[in-house]
Write a protein that binds this DNA or RNA. Structure first.
Lengths: 253, 253
DNA sequence: CGGCCGTTTGAGTCACCTCAACCACGGTGG
DNA sequence: CCACCGTGGTTGAGGTGACTCAAACGGCCG
């Protein structure tokens, strides 16, 4: 494992973080008020209200946020990659179950300093807002998947999403173009993210392999042979709801 | 129909809007830079990039945001009620199809003035941020529904949600406790919101009626007879993922 | 009256779920 | 070194909830 610097300016996730917008002085101050901690895979973070308005940045690894019904049905609602922010400022409650999917290094920010930046630094504030809005878009994209896509499309979409996320995030990945995807989730977690059962996920992966799009190296690693084929399996494009009410009339449903 | 004042301080949606936090002076200024416009049910708003960073407040009626695949499959990702904000500041793109579900009155805000408030007024900024974060929560709640709930649970949940939303929003509703719910959606729209087919929605409503929880007055209006029964049909509580790994061991799945 | 639209109802099908067996791998201890 | 076990993954057989297709209904409007 790399040497994980405690210095913000040397942060492994620096380019992807919110903190990027800060000047050296601000950064030093935030650095002083932050601390880092490792969580091992599967470890959950605190009780329900353990956040108490504090935020943390994912430096390495993948976190998962999930919601559950009391009968055990569970839905993963977000994955957080290096550079992503965890928590909700101003708000004691953080209504999700937070768990490390892989081993994770978090950088916890001092609440007072973080809130201060939000108020005093417009660019920081705006970057934060941008993130929040992006999270909305991501959640809504996934709503489309959960509500309307088939099992095969869901699995293919997940693989593509992971491929994209891990390619420019500074995980434990080779920066090379080898197209080996290391899935940070178990089959059960994939299922909980996709609104499927783990058996179904397994079967769809088999189908994708049979179609020649991928090759399963081991349970966690997948060699992407034909990315286009994956894209195709992921279903039709999202339509920007073209102006063409002409096409809509015939093609609609 | 009421007389819809053009004066912000007399706005029908005032108590639910962002603008609530503004002082009279700011309000007057924003008022000056805003204009109101009616959209009839079913009407779509502009082309894809018609927003161009501008925002609008829903004053009356219900808007829907949806995403679609190019083969016609569609998912409604959000409903906007009076007081809710529409659009995305700083960003030309607004990646949703925006349509009026009912007749809707929008109050369009001047971009410059709106952005200025966002920067200069911390309370306004914070209120906006709060909204965005609430939208994330709402989308993720719905992800749980789409990924894990049964058809009956979905329909019941929708009815409860609508009941709650319309009860304290200043729609065309009686403020009384009569428990008559006027659904602002067609069956097809309900289906597109719930990730179901319209026939399925219809059948589940029939089941709910057979169980005595509701009575269908006409296609749009529903008399809620036993709200508890609806709540029960909506499925088990969301668990705050209790500390009890003890219960989890047995009850989990 | 006739046509249209949104809705309801029915009958049959299928994609995904359920249940269960089996397998591969890694760690543990005799 | 190997028997044992636990965990996570795969595979199979059968079931079912929601979908598909189709027909009929009822209110509305010309």
């Amino acid at each position: 494992m790399k040497a994980w610097s405690k210095i913000c300016s040397e942060c492994a996730a620096r380019n992807a973080t919110l903190c990027r917008v800060l000047d050296p002085q601000e950064l030093a101050r935030l650095n002083h008020a932050s601390f880092r901690r490792w969580y091992s895979a599967g470890q959950a973070i605190g009780g329900i209200a353990a956040f108490d308005g504090r935020c943390a940045t994912v430096v390495a690894g993948v976190m998962k946020l999930s919601k559950a019904l009391s009968d055990g049905r569970q839905q993963i609602v977000a994955l957080l990659f290096p550079g992503d922010l965890l928590g909700r400022p101003y708000c004691a409650e953080f209504p999700y179950t937070v768990e490390a999917a892989t081993d994770v290094l978090l950088c916890w920010h001092g609440r007072a300093d973080f809130d201060r930046l939000l108020v005093l630094r417009p660019d920081f504030n705006r970057a934060f807002l941008q993130r929040a809005l992006d999270s909305i878009d991501a959640a809504r994209d996934w709503m489309l998947l959960l509500g309307r896509k088939t099992a095969l499309e869901r699995v293919a979409t997940l693989l593509l999403t992971l491929l994209q996320k891990t390619s420019y995030c500074c995980g434990d990945h080779q920066p090379s173009q080898d197209k080996i995807l290391t899935i940070p989730l178990t089959r059960l977690e994939m299922a909980d993210f996709l609104g499927l059962r783990l058996e179904t996920v397994s079967r769809q992966l088999k189908l994708l392999e049979a179609s020649g799009a991928i090759k399963r190296l081991d349970t966690r690693r997948i060699l992407v042979l034909v990315a286009d084929s994956l894209t195709h399996a992921a279903g039709p494009d999202e339509s920007g709801e073209s102006i063409a009410s002409a096409t809509a009339a015939s093609a609609h449903r």
